[in-house]
Computed example of a mutant assay.
Amino acid sequence: MTEPLRLGVLVDCEAKLALLKTAVGQTGQKIEYCALVPSVNDTAGSNTPVLCLDQLDRIRDLDAWLVDIIHAEDDTQQAPGAAILNALLSSSLPVLLNDSSEMGDSPSDKVAWVNRVKTRLQRLLGEVNLQANPAAHEVWVLAASTGGPTALCEFLGELEPNLGLGFLYAQHIEEGYSPALMSMITRAGPYPPVTAGQGSVIQPNAITIVDPARRVQVLENSTLIVHDEPWGGCYQPSIDQLVANLARTHKNRCGMIVFSGMGEDGSASCRFIKQQGGQVWVQAPENCVVDSMPCAVLETECVDLTAEPAELARALNRRLKTKANSIEEQAADESPAIHRI
Score class of each variant (00 low, 15 high):
264 E>P: 00
288 C>Y: 03
310 A>H: 02
254 C>P: 02
297 V>M: 12
253 R>A: 06
266 G>F: 11
299 E>G: 04
312 L>Y: 01
313 A>D: 06
309 P>G: 07
262 M>T: 11
295 C>N: 14
270 C>N: 13
314 R>T: 12
312 L>A: 05
254 C>Q: 10
252 N>V: 00
320 L>C: 12
315 A>W: 02
255 G>H: 02
277 G>E: 09
277 G>L: 02
309 P>T: 04
284 A>F: 02
278 G>V: 08
317 N>F: 05
251 K>C: 03
293 M>L: 14
277 G>H: 06
266 G>A: 09
300 T>C: 05
256 M>Q: 12
320 L>S: 01
278 G>A: 08
297 V>A: 09
297 V>C: 08
251 K>Y: 03
286 E>L: 07
304 D>C: 05
273 I>E: 02
309 P>C: 05
264 E>N: 14
283 Q>D: 11
265 D>C: 12
260 S>V: 08
275 Q>Y: 07
252 N>I: 00
302 C>R: 06
276 Q>Y: 01
315 A>F: 03
277 G>W: 01
264 E>D: 15
287 N>Q: 11
253 R>M: 08
281 W>D: 01
251 K>F: 01
308 E>W: 00
320 L>M: 15
308 E>S: 12
251 K>D: 09
252 N>F: 01
300 T>I: 02
310 A>N: 06
313 A>M: 04
288 C>N: 10
290 V>H: 04
307 A>K: 05
273 I>M: 14
270 C>E: 11
286 E>C: 02
301 E>R: 13
313 A>K: 02
304 D>H: 10
291 D>Y: 07
283 Q>C: 12
253 R>L: 09
277 G>R: 05
273 I>P: 03
280 V>A: 08
310 A>I: 00
268 A>Q: 15
310 A>F: 01
313 A>G: 04
300 T>R: 11
276 Q>N: 08
314 R>D: 02
316 L>M: 13
299 E>W: 03
303 V>H: 07
288 C>E: 04
289 V>T: 12
287 N>P: 00
251 K>Q: 14
270 C>P: 11
313 A>L: 06
319 R>S: 12
